[in-house]
Design a protein around this nucleic acid. Sequence first.
DNA 1: ATGAGTGCAAAAAGTTTGCACCGCT
DNA 2: AGCGGTGCAAACTTTTTGCACTCAT
Lengths: 165, 165
Amino acid sequence: MSDLGTVAVAVSPLDKFREFLGTRGKRLTKERAAIVEEVFSSHEHFDADQLVSRLSRRTDGNSVSRSTIYRRLTELVEAGLLRKVARNHDREVYEHDYGYPQHDHLICRKCGKLTEFQNDAVAKTLEDVADEHGFRMTGHRLEVYGTCAECSRPPRSRHRKLDMI
Amino acid sequence: MSDLGTVAVAVSPLDKFREFLGTRGKRLTKERAAIVEEVFSSHEHFDADQLVSRLSRRTDGNSVSRSTIYRRLTELVEAGLLRKVARNHDREVYEHDYGYPQHDHLICRKCGKLTEFQNDAVAKTLEDVADEHGFRMTGHRLEVYGTCAECSRPPRSRHRKLDMI
DNA sequence: ATGAGTGCAAAAAGTTTGCACCGCT
DNA sequence: AGCGGTGCAAACTTTTTGCACTCAT
């Protein structure tokens, strides 16, 4: 995941989560805390399975069950901390939605790599389109498909099978 | 689905499919024919399950099994006749890719309505972005989320519950 | 004839849910 | 104490696959 930089935020993800939980009569359990901490310890995209692994790898014994992970992931999206970005290998992929700038993705069809990019022209155009349709836009999802630079580079020392198709 | 008009095509979807099958040593079975006919009889978006229903509803007895539907849907995407657009209710949604102009979607979060729109500026911008990254773009998927005109209209004679949130 | 294609049932895979026990507040 | 939360296992959903039979070429 390319780093577009971090937006300065007034409160930490955990604080924002606390606030969210408070308004709903929910509790800040050690599982919720561990998940938020782990999730925001890196800007990588991830799916439910990877998060379970990352947590179970921790030495502090704060691993969390798969079902709880699913329940909390849904909750973090509601809370505005995470966002679903795409599907990869039939799994939902998440990324930070809080404290991270709006951006879109280039998705390589060959290696699956996600590259972020930011372009104001896109957002501006979308607002115009939405206006024309009396549509109140709250967000968007833009995925550009194709082949990334690495995968486009012709293979040097490899069999030529693919070239014959 | 709003109608953006149909692009004049040299050959019918079925013909294009025939051509595709020919180059791969595949056969035009009555199942394949029935699927293409049904799929291109309307511009609606649809998912695998809906297609199964539509076919089993036909009086000509040309219903097709669920597994064959999945196999053919994948094939029609390869053939360039269909395109996956989004997921709705956890199902892949398809739309025509052949004989229909490139476009994107406004998706209403309240009623789920898909509205198509066409905007050249978007495509142009994406090409620039792709170039900057040495990315070879083959396509994109752009979904704009929000509230459609109808759902934005304040309810006239309805309870006011929602207004209090 | 012959190998691609179909339907059926079983299998996968990710995600959700019922339930008994646990632990915040 | 009381109620929200957790883990486990079972359930669910959509999609894929193995296999024997069928049929287009």
